[in-house]
Design a protein around this nucleic acid. Structure first.
Length: 432
DNA sequence: TCTGGGGTCCTAGGACCC
DNA sequence: TCTGGGGTCCTAGGACCC
């Protein structure tokens, strides 16, 4: 598929659309690759010049694997005339939004699952699932130029399998419906364990030890046994494969629970000041994201690792978290916390490969109260700290703590944790 | 010589997804 | 010299409390 738009000078992978009917269950999925004017030349997208994260069909035909390390294949790619582009998530986000808007016209409930996937509730379309799916496909293609494939089934897990089947069908119409037992059996028997949603290498290995090597064997396995060995996720997987939904449609876009900024370094970092610079940059980037979403962070974590691909080198991985007295989105505050955390994880003599900053315990910034949020040492803050000292002397060290919980930000006495005593009225603290 | 049990919270780590 | 980045969820184990 070609997009002739001049701004789309690389290609975007977009649009597996899984539509799931949640109540009595059906589902739909699509995948498309949009390739810009490279006239049939193989094309890939890399992330940070590290890994291949998307491939055009021509590139797939060359045997270029998903996630292939870029540096190992650089020479071969050049020889084969592979066009390489960097990822452009702003562009993909824009295309994605257009597709999602169209999909909302085809079902009342749409879950935007990722940048290129959606689950739709198709309850009520039972007698015309196929024509509805074709209609949807046609419209998305006409209006955006993006081909999508559709998988329909009683559960999300089966819908994903249906989607995969639809995508792989040679000469098919891009739609796969797995509503009946025989249909499901036929489709599942053509898949490998790791084709299933939620099963990657580690789980597959553990399943093999239970003599479960195919999706059908997993479906027919004892859920209790699977739960014992793989936990609750494994049990859910078995049930979903049997057509018993364990996952509802998620309609509301929940706020982020964490924000990360991280990078792998092009060459090993051995000097502390270099790492400090990087961590500062990560912190700024994460803080910007935080503010754009109208959030504040209560906890900041810094992590560093050496290169795990070089086992012959001494390995070290560490992370340190700093809890802020009050949730903040202020760069100065976050930078200070990041510096403290980094100093604590830093060890001389290692070749650092990757580092990052993670912001956690996010709360709406609007909930953070007045002076206590500002980085400066205000009189109110000094009063607060004195009060904390008094309380700690009376009740023991660290008996008062600050926390964000749900929509409330406040303090609590540890001894009263059970009663979850939160408040945003800081003066109460002074009276304890 | 014998050294509770149950609940909660926190953290680190593992596994998965796109 | 070179192997991504950004997320979520679950679990095990230790600390702590009663």
């Amino acid at each position: 598929m070609l997009i002739r738009s001049s701004q789309a000078q690389n290609y975007a992978k977009l649009g597996r659309v899984d539509l799931a009917k949640s109540v009595d269950n059906s589902s739909l999925g699509s995948e498309c690759v949009v390739v810009t004017p490279h006239n049939g030349r193989p094309c890939i997208i890399s992330n940070n010049d590290g890994c291949v994260i998307a491939r055009s069909n021509e590139a797939k035909a060359l045997g270029i694997a998903m996630g292939a390390p870029w540096h190992l294949h650089k020479a071969a790619f050049a020889k084969q005339g592979v066009v390489v582009r960097s990822s452009n998530y702003t562009l993909y986000g824009d295309l994605s939004a257009r597709v999602m808007t169209i999909l909302r016209g085809f079902a009342p409930d749409v879950e935007v699952y990722s940048i290129d996937e959606a689950f739709l509730d198709l309850a009520g379309f039972d007698d015309r699932l196929h024509s509805h799916a074709l209609d949807m496909r046609r419209t998305v293609l006409q209006w955006t130029g993006i081909p999508v494939s559709v998988g329909i089934a009683p559960t999300k897990t089966l819908a994903k399998a249906a989607n995969r089947t639809a995508k792989k069908q040679k000469g098919g119409d891009g739609v796969c419906i797995l509503m009946t037992g025989p249909e499901q059996k036929a489709a599942l028997s053509a898949l490998a364990l790791t084709d299933l949603w939620g099963v990657a290498g580690r789980l597959a290995t553990r399943l093999e030890k239970l003599s479960i090597t195919t999706p059908l064997q997993l479906r027919d396995a004892d859920p209790q046994l699977v739960r014992q060995h793989l936990g609750v996720l494994g049990e859910r997987l078995v049930l979903e494969l049997r057509g018993i939904p364990c996952q509802r449609l998620v309609l509301s876009q929940a706020a982020n629970k964490s924000i990360v900024a991280s990078r792998s370094f092009g060459r090993p970092v051995t000097e502390k000041f270099e790492l400090e610079q990087a961590v500062s940059a990560f912190t700024e980037r994460a803080a910007e994201k935080l503010r754009r979403q109208g959030l504040a962070a209560s906890v900041l974590q810094v992590f560093v690792t050496t290169n795990p691909f070089k086992p012959q080198e001494r390995q070290y991985a560490a992370s340190r978290t700093v809890t802020l007295p009050v949730a903040s989105a202020d760069s100065t505050v976050l930078l200070r916390a990041a510096r403290v955390a980094l100093t604590s994880v830093w060890r001389d003599g290692y070749r650092y490969k990757k580092a990052g900053v993670m912001l956690l315990d996010l709360v709406p910034a609007a909930m953070v109260q007045g002076d206590l949020w500002t980085p400066a040492d205000t009189p109110a803050r000094q009063q607060l700290m004195e009060a904390v000292d008094v309380i700690n002397r009376r009740y023991g060290r660290r008996s008062v703590s600050f926390a964000a919980s749900g929509v409330k930000l406040g303090w609590m006495l540890r001894s009263e944790q059970r009663s979850s005593r939160f408040t945003t009225d800081w003066s109460e603290l002074l009276q304890v």
